[in-house]
Design a binder for these strands. Structure first.
Length: 566
RNA sequence: UACCCGGUGGUGUAAUAGGCAACACAACUGGUUUUGGUCCAGUCAUUCGAGGUUCGAGUCCUCGCCGGGUAGCCA
């Protein structure tokens, strides 16, 4: 996907259509500017990726820019470390805000001045009600609210009180500045919303400069306006706030106010995109951290080995709409495979090794065999793999009793070892106590070099293998969905969403990998043939040995057949 | 019960000024293949309901039905 490519002839989503209408009616005088406005109180996840792709993508499509603006209006939970982490994640995804890095806290003075402007116009007042009283005065869905006793304070008194709020004269929570709109409005958000609250907290950027902080509604639209945002794209939960968003820009008498357009946030099966719940998983130790490869956080997916391009392609493919949909996780997995298939170098990795001895292959002998690095890309070249008398193959590629359509190794049957020889299983050696198969004694057809039979007989089964001589042992982590349920948030009453966690979301294997993998470096992604895509775990690989993460499995139609039979 | 927003195959997203419901994924068939991968071909919906306007409605109007959101000094 190329986000910078104008989509002239292509289909547009409802946001693009709205923008094109605005562009047309502005008659050349409008420049498209968007913004991605995270609150620095947590790490970015898959849901944010969609917002990032939309905002940066739209800007690129229409030749505009996208600002990165931290919405840091609530110091009680925001930290600089999140600012840095968020910047890193956005860059990793492949987007660049250039010099357009902003903070809502950078506008505190302008916001304050605007507040006085509204007070002077008689459109804002200082209210002495406490939070509980404000709630009671607000009324309900069906009953209108009651005016605050302070609603008709004079301008001078309001100004005086507001300045004293700003000077820090009052205790936290004792007063607010509220917009004077309409306590009888059917839109609850318009019933004299709070603009400022008193909060003597240490702000990550302005420290103790301000004892009052603007509310989201008062800060966001105005920040948009200051930055010249043309289209403020946000998720559906802000739809109810749009009348207020517009009220502020109207009453501030701003020219060319930004237009807010809401879209449905990304929802994916078998996972969650709730900051609060993800935090719970981390804090309760259900995962190893924010970067646990099973987490839908960008840090987690990065460590897992998911290519950022796949995430962007996925976001593009699933589209943008106002319908609250849930995307099937297989779509993400597919996007990952689609991106990796033409790129990832092929290697052999045996996850669950079982020893094979080629009884008619001379002891001590070995040979090197050429293997293709990527059949999808001839430029990727070839590599040498070692063949020897003792090999490892996948336990799943052997059955004592072959089910129907099982093409792999079975006593008395022949399979091809990819790029090497055809072998026949002659004998099964078991552990006398456990009955477990510990070794397969096979014979090879010396005429079948490269897997081609000299007599033209067909050998349908083909399996991967590694030599016992130069393969090495490594830990391989097989990840599955973090949750066993497609909709983890749906729980029977009295239960917690963690009851939906998938107990098998991580399975650790002691694998045997081909020698070429020993030089794997962080960030490289491989396809272990017939198994899946893997990458080196940057955190846990070390002197004690390599650790590989499975990014995603290969499609497995044999598994599908077997599942269907049950 | 007030207000706001939605409803197109199994899942999503489309459908230029109303003009043959398209694309992708999933599923199922089959083909190719030294990865049971990839790739290729085929099958799979009368658009929530009822009226109305119109030569013609997924698109426009009316009335319903169903789903989501909103009563933080969170964002």
């Amino acid at each position: 996907m190329d986000l910078s490519k104008p989509r002239g002839g292509e289909r547009r989503n409802f946001i693009e259509r709205a923008i094109e209408e605005d562009l047309a009616s502005a008659d050349g005088s409008m420049e498209i500017t968007t913004r991605f406005p995270p609150e620095p109180n947590g790490f970015l996840h898959l849901g944010h990726a969609k917002a990032i792709c939309i905002n940066f993508g739209i800007a690129a499509t229409y030749g505009g820019v996208c600002n990165l603006r931290f919405d840091d209006t609530n110091p009680s939970r925001e930290e600089t470390r999140y600012v840095e982490a968020i910047k890193e994640d956005i860059r990793w995804l492949g987007f660049d805000w250039h010099e357009r890095l902003f903070f809502a806290s950078g506008y505190f003075q302008q916001l304050y001045d605007w507040a006085e402007f509204l007070i002077n116009k008689g459109k804002a007042y200082v209210c002495d009600l406490d939070p509980d009283e404000i709630r009671k005065f607000r009324g309900t869905f069906t009953e209108s609210g009651k005016d605050s006793p302070n609603r008709d304070r004079g301008v001078e008194e309001n100004l005086d009180l507001f300045r004293r709020m700003r000077a820090g004269e009052f205790a936290d929570g004792t007063r607010t500045l509220r917009a004077k709109i309409d306590m009888a409005s059917p839109h609850l958000v318009l019933r004299d919303p709070v603009m400022y609250r008193i909060m003597k907290a240490d702000h990550h950027r302005t420290r103790d400069e301000w004892p009052i902080y603007p509310m989201y509604d008062w800060a966001h639209g105005q920040s948009d306006a200051i930055e010249g945002i043309s289209h403020s794209l946000c998720s559906l939960e802000f739809e109810n706030h749009r009348p207020l968003y517009d009220w502020y820009t109207e009453n501030l008498e701003l020219e060319s106010p930004p237009r807010q357009i809401e879209f449905a946030r990304l929802e994916v099966t078998y996972t969650l995109t709730s900051k609060r719940k993800l935090r719970h998983l981390v804090e309760e130790g259900h995962v190893s951290g924010w970067d646990d490869p099973r987490m839908p956080t960008l840090k987690g997916m990065r460590r897992r080995g998911v290519p950022p391009e796949a995430i962007c392609n996925f976001c593009e493919e699933v589209g943008v709409a106002k319908f609250r949909s849930t995307i099937d996780m297989v779509r993400l997995e597919n996007a990952i495979r689609d991106h990796l298939n033409p790129r990832a170098l092929r290697r052999f990795g045996v996850l669950d090794p079982i020893k094979v001895v080629i009884t008619n292959y001379p002891e001590g002998q070995q040979e090197t065999i050429e293997a293709i690095n990527n059949p999808e890309d001839s430029a990727a070249g070839t590599r040498q793999v070692t063949f020897s008398r003792e090999l490892w193959i996948e336990r799943a590629d052997f059955r004592e009793e072959a089910p129907r359509k099982f093409f792999r190794l079975v006593p008395g049957r022949e399979v091809r070892l990819r790029y090497a020889y055809c072998i026949t299983c002659d004998e099964v050696v078991k552990d006398p106590d456990s009955g477990e198969v510990v070794e397969l004694r096979c014979s090879y057809d010396p005429q079948s070099s490269g897997g081609r039979t000299s007599d033209g007989r067909k050998v349908k089964g083909i399996i991967h293998w590694v030599s016992a001589i130069d393969s090495f042992e490594a830990e391989v982590r097989i990840y599955d969905h973090l949750f066993a349920s497609p909709r983890p948030e749906e729980v029977t009453e009295g239960q917690d969403f963690t009851t939906n966690l998938n107990p098998d979301s991580l399975i650790v294997k002691r694998a045997r990998l081909e020698a070429a993998l020993e030089s794997a470096s962080p960030g490289e992604r491989f396809q272990f043939e017939r198994v899946g895509y893997f990458t080196l775990d940057e955190v846990d690989s070390g002197a004690a040995g390599a650790v590989f993460n499975r990014i995603v499995a290969l499609r497995d139609s044999w598994a599908k057949i077997e599942k269907r039979k049950k």
